[in-house]
């Protein structure tokens, strides 16, 4: 891999907790790695497992998903739904050839700006160690 390689991390967050937490990281000027691209959904319950697959297909090296802490969901139980879905999803992803280490599920509240910044840095460092997800990206369409 090249010296300057930077991972691409696609992040799906809910509007009420983690998006606000990311905003707080900004207003507090907590610096973090610029490798992530945030996609906002109303609730982590809206995040479709197919989004994750699509992100990897489009060249992501990792996917980070974050919503409200259990019990804090703006919609009462959307994040519980998300949690159930992604526990199942992990197994399916490994069947598809997607390394579970590259799919990170975290809770981050609107007050946890520092946690969000740390989380992004940790994930970024970890994925840098893992390297580019070439074994998946190099598969041709049919193999996928």
């Amino acid at each position: 891999m090249s010296e300057n390689w930077e991972p691409k991390i696609v992040t799906f967050v809910c509007n009420w907790c983690t998006y606000a937490g990311a905003d707080l990281a900004g207003t507090s000027r907590f610096k973090y790695s610029p490798n992530i691209r945030i996609i906002k959904t109303p609730c982590s319950g809206r995040i479709d497992p197919m989004f994750i697959v699509a992100a990897f297909e489009k060249g992501a090296d990792a996917v980070l998903i974050s919503g409200c802490h259990p019990g804090d969901c703006h919609y009462n139980e959307g994040n519980y739904n998300a949690r159930r879905k992604f526990i199942m999803m992990r197994r399916l992803l490994s069947e598809l050839g997607i390394d579970n280490e590259r799919v990170i599920f975290a809770w981050c509240s609107a007050s946890e700006g520092i946690k969000f910044a740390r989380l992004v840095n940790e994930v970024s460092e970890k994925i840098k160690e893992l390297g580019p997800f070439d074994e998946y990206h190099n598969l041709d369409q049919e193999e996928r």
């Binding site: 959904t41 109303p42 609730c43 319950g45 809206r46 995040i47 479709d48 497992p49 197919m50 703006h74 919609y75 139980e77 959307g78 739904n81 998300a82 879905k85």
Partner: peptide, 10 residues
């Protein structure tokens, strides 16, 4: 409906 979207992926 409050627009959480939990239904959509289901």
């Amino acid at each position: 409906c409050v627009g959480c979207g939990t239904c959509t992926p289901s």
